[in-house]
Design a protein around this nucleic acid. Structure first.
Length: 770
DNA sequence: TGGAGCGTAATTTTT
DNA sequence: TTACGCTCCA
């Protein structure tokens, strides 16, 4: 009987799916890899599959779905609920799952309840502290570098000891010691960083077979989305969680792996079959999103990558209009033209929400914003430094963090004199010393400030702060929103912010009030609200989660943030060498394929219209810099694009193919790849632009290049000795000439390696014999 | 103690 | 352009 209804339900779940989608949804036991092209209905497949598991008898609580963003998790929860599945299924992000499991197994991982989660800013402070403890000068080694090494080590599950063992040269030994001190500080503060959330879980699972067993029984089916973005620790967690039953369903697209720089390992998905030889592989290649033109451009571009699994993307959708490649004389023209295009479309009835403008780096958003604002167009921006990074929010949260975790010295240091209450660096320094000597938390030292001999006059002020914290502690026992409110009132933060506003500053009060209402919402929605839990959630909330694609406003966002979204019309700006692909990818350690995937992600966000653009020059950090067209433009197929040039005084359109190639004017290394008769984009300073009737055009860029050719740094090579005004004598490690600016890394005897823009640096070549 | 002012470096992407 | 860190001065 039950069986009958189940079959019936399954049929319904499969009804409107294509064949591979059905296969994925109907798959029951054993490993399954779903290689899902963009717009191929992946989310649909995942949710249907979850529903199908339930229909065929799996209890929801035995299913664990893991996503990368909270937003994806929320969406999945909603869609699953819409399919009528009982609550009880676990849907978490990797990091939230980490928190959840660490709460349970915390003692095994040496973590106390109420632990703080340190974000990047906190981590940086902590590394600096660790370096100070080791008495390393942070000129010698950049804290950022130490941090990224530590993070990488954690992803490999390497303890400081293990890291030290395999470190042979100097930098690494130094980092090994910093790593050790860093870990010690974390422990003292009862804190974990983002990497710990994964690493510690992975370690617990590695070392405790009984826990793995328990979890395998608890979660009999594992669904992991965006598998291409998993790093090593996540990979290990996934593996352990499906160790006994192998019911792992990974979905993703290697072509959309864009987080390699953060440790994501694309081979996790590429080699899924190696890990699970019995795996079923399903390819979702039919695209329901884009026009044929757009899809062709995307596939053609991504074909240039070597590290991938081939997919034949196709669609029943209309041919559509060709992709438009626009060249502009200047970045400002680009912004103007986009705003104009949107304005016209809006007049003929298209809502603003249909448009998205994407870029590689946040820095470019400003010009676009200005152009939109000038026309009074509504826009939203998904920016990196948004809500939770605002000063006033971080301050407020720091108070709460100390209340939740008295050992959190980083948070305490942030608030001890914020707002200013006369506790200066000298006093703080003395307290820190005392804390160090007596193995106390700073808060504890604050509480017993009178017993510190070196502090006399300032003690009264510290006392007042200690009392404040004690009061707040009492008031924070109740609802979280009340705790936030109490902090704001009692600490003087609110008063300080109000004063700031009256003096014409930003309206930071409004942001803080937003935090209060977020807390109130939390209190209401969560069954058992606690301050600790609230803070941990907040730490794991990103701006990515706040993107609202449905608002009727033009959306500005980075290509990374665009993953998973779709829009009728997409503009991708700044397709220039150094931007996309980014400079860093062009340098030694970079990964150009990842840049291409980024472009691929952007292109495949577009449903009907796609504009990609570049400018011959643009303002970059206050200087006008000549730019070259991106090499990726060369890789787009002729038959899917049209070219437009928009100058200050003239514009013309050319369809693909009709451009006069002027290859012979390009130096050999700039000859187009591929070698066959293909249309040339104006590239490398637009030198292929037909020199036509447009007399107004002054080729500033070309002039710039000519000047660069006579670069004063032409004879600098790795190994060249140079002298810096401040750092003294050093040696060139690498040097890279670029338009208008030459970058070089110099290794100094006493200050370590530094990179400079030579044009802006007081540095000279050291002549022989000196 | 704390704020102003200066110099200096330098910009990716974020769970 | 801008952000940050440091020094110096009130």
């Amino acid at each position: 009987m039950k069986r009958m209804t189940a079959t019936h339900a399954t049929t319904r779940l499969l009804a409107d799916l294509n064949e591979p989608q059905r296969q994925a949804v109907a798959h029951r036991d054993g490993p399954l890899l779903v290689l899902a092209g963009p717009g191929s209905g992946k989310t649909r497949v995942i949710t249907r599959r979850a529903a199908n598991l339930v229909q065929t008898g799996v209890a929801p609580r035995h299913i664990l779905a893991i996503t990368f963003t909270n937003k994806a998790a929320d969406e999945m929860r909603q869609r699953i609920a819409a399919l009528g599945i009982d609550r009880g299924m676990w849907v978490y992000t990797f990091h939230a799952l980490g928190v959840r499991l660490l709460r349970e197994f915390g003692p095994l991982a040496h973590i106390e309840p109420g632990f703080s989660i340190y974000d990047e800013a906190d981590q940086k402070r902590l590394v600096k502290e660790a370096m100070a403890l080791c008495q390393f000068n942070d000129q010698l080694l950049k804290p950022e570098r130490a941090l990224s090494q530590i993070s990488a080590a954690k992803n490999r599950l390497e303890t400081p000891e293990k890291y030290a063992e395999r470190s042979d040269f100097f930098d690494q030994r130094m980092i090994a010691r910093i790593y050790e001190a860093y870990e010690q500080l974390l422990r003292q503060r009862n804190a974990v960083d983002f990497d710990d959330l994964l690493m510690r879980v992975a370690v617990v699972l590695r070392d405790h077979a009984e826990i793995v067993e328990r979890l395998n029984i608890r979660f009999q089916y594992l669904l992991i989305d965006e598998y291409q973005d998993t790093n090593h620790a996540q990979y290990l967690i996934a593996k352990q969680l499906s160790k006994h039953h192998h019911n792992i369903c990974a979905t993703g697209d290697p072509d959309q792996s864009i987080y390699g720089w953060r440790g994501a390992d694309i081979s996790n998905i590429l080699e899924f079959e190696r890990d699970y030889p019995e795996a079923t592989i399903v390819r979702l290649e039919e695209n329901y999103r884009s026009t044929k033109h757009i899809l062709r451009a995307a596939s053609q571009l991504i074909r240039n990558n070597r590290k991938r699994k081939h997919k034949d993307l196709w669609t029943h959708n209309a041919e559509g209009e060709p992709v438009t490649v626009c060249e502009f004389d200047e970045g400002r023209d680009e912004a103007e033209h986009i705003a104009e295009t949107i304005a016209q479309a809006h007049e003929s009835g298209e809502p603003y929400g249909n448009f998205a403008i994407m870029y590689r780096v946040n820095a470019i958003s400003r010009g676009l914003e200005e152009a939109l604002r000038f026309r009074g167009m509504p826009y939203r921006i998904a920016r990196g430094v948004e809500f939770y990074n605002r000063r006033e929010i971080r301050d407020t949260l720091a108070y709460l963090r100390v209340l939740a975790n008295p050992a959190d010295d980083i948070a305490l240091l942030r608030i001890i004199n914020t707002p200013a209450r006369g506790i200066g660096n000298t006093t703080i320094g003395r307290m820190r010393e005392y804390a160090e000597e007596h193995h106390l938390s700073l808060l504890e030292v604050v509480r017993r400030v009178e017993t510190i001999p070196s502090i006399k006059t300032a003690a009264r002020k510290v006392r007042a702060f200690a009392d404040l914290m004690a009061e707040l502690k009492v008031e924070s026992e109740g609802a979280v929103a009340d705790a936030v409110g109490a902090v704001l009132k009692r600490s003087g933060l609110e008063a300080a912010l109000k004063k700031e506003r009256e003096e014409g500053g930003e309206d930071r009060i409004a942001n803080v009030e937003e935090l209060v209402s977020a807390a109130a919402r939390y209190d209401e929605e969560i069954e058992d609200p606690t301050l600790e839990d609230f803070l941990q959630r907040v730490s794991l909330t990103s701006d990515q989660d706040a993107i609202d694609e449905n608002a009727d406003a033009v959306l500005l966002l980075t290509l990374h943030a665009a993953k998973g979204l779709e829009f009728p019309t997409v503009f991708i700006v700044g397709l220039e060498q150094g931007m996309l692909p980014h400079d860093r990818a062009l340098q030694g350690d970079g990964d150009i394929e990842e840049e291409r995937r980024l472009a691929f992600v952007g292109i495949t966000r577009a449903e009907r219209r796609l504009y990609v653009s570049h400018a011959a020059q643009r303002f970059l950090r206050g200087v006008m810099v000549p730019r070259c067209a991106s090499q990726f433009l060369d890789e787009l197929p002729d038959d899917a694009v049209t070219f437009e040039h928009h100058g200050g005084s003239s514009s013309h359109t050319t369809t693909g193919g009709s451009f006069v190639p002027m290859d012979d004017q390009l130096p050999p290394d700039e000859q187009p790849r591929g070698g066959h008769k293909r249309r040339e984009w104006p590239r490398k300073q637009s030198r292929t632009r037909p020199v036509d009737e447009d007399e107004h055009y002054i080729d500033v860029a070309a002039q710039e290049v000519a000047r660069a050719k006579k670069s004063p740094y032409a004879d600098w090579t790795p190994g060249t000795f140079v002298e810096h005004k401040m750092y003294g004598v050093g040696q060139v490690v690498w040097i890279r000439p670029g338009p208008g600016q030459t970058r070089a890394a110099i290794r100094f005897a006493r200050h370590g390696e530094k990179t400079f823009i030579l044009e802006l640096t007081p540095i000279q070549k050291l002549e022989r014999g000196k």
